[in-house]
Amino acid sequence: MSTTIPAGMREMTYREAAREGLHEALTRDERVFLMGEDVGRYGGSYAVSLGFLEEFGPERIRDTPLSESAFVGAGIGAAIGGMRPIVEVMTVNFSLLAADQIINTAATYLHMSGGQINVPLVIRMATGGGLQLAAQHSHSLENLYAHVPGLKVLTPATVEDVRGMLATALADPDPVLIFEHILLYNRKGLLAADAGAVDIHRARIRRAGTQVSLITYGGSLWKCLEAAELLEQQGIDAEVLDLRTLRPLDDEAIMATVTRTRRVVIVDEGWRSGGISAEITARIHEQAFYELDVPVQRVCAAEVPIPYAKQLEDAALPQVADIVAAAGRLVKGND
């Protein structure tokens, strides 16, 4: 990254950008409030809401009991009741304690009520591995929620997206889940001074290329961009597509990159079996099979609970070298 900051841009961490987005939402709309474990005095387990309790008060910055089912359920009830709750679930792993409320209530009410009741709820949660927290704190289960009709699943990878997707999610009449990768909070990026809401329906090309497409999202975006640099040194021109949103998937952008490069590697920290990488592969086969020169390849988490020791965790998670190798095989094998 350049050391000079272009005019009209600010450098900030992903955490600061998430915090700014939350701050703006709380300032702009009195109906917005934040609730979750340790969001108040502690400032959020990833320090995103640090200082908010003092600024906005305990009614709008609510520390909850350790009761995911009840406080996510309460978020649903409050959203239907006219508030705009932002519920923070500490990690996606813990969200399974509230899966009934997310999948059986939030996702179903609109359809099951014949359109009478919508649930304008936003749930934020951390996801992913890489901090040596072992299996129960390191999984990438966003795939699971992307399986469910009625939910929108956002996976911001950049400071612009983590800041701007929240505003769009809050304006959305349907339940929206936002997944923040734990390795991104300290990552710095550039944000336009006038940054605001961003669209949540379009994937974005983060690096244009012609020979192979790396399709990814969230924390893996940065591994793919690094891999693309290394591939360039090998004379391989890689394109990187950031999905940004896992439901609904931007089929158009996926097929467009397939058509451009004719070679695809999908990179996902979720498991390969039944994951979003499987879904994307199937869609490519349904919609753009004849655009492919070679079969789609996937670089995913190993099919194990994510282990603790660094050597083991690294071996289980997708690494830059794995991405470079997979893309290299596709391109060189086809020369």
């Binding site: 359920g73 009934d100 014949g114 009478q116």
Partner: peptide, 30 residues
């Protein structure tokens, strides 16, 4: 579901309790 009289029900045991608590919270906050 009949939002005109604020009635809903659920086929899953105890599932309506969290949303009821949240509905009460919205009334309290508003």
């Amino acid at each position: 579901f009949d939002p005109k009289v604020n009635f809903s029900c659920s086929g899953i045991i105890a599932q309506g309790m969290g949303p009821a608590v949240g509905a009460a919270l919205s009334r309290q906050m508003q």
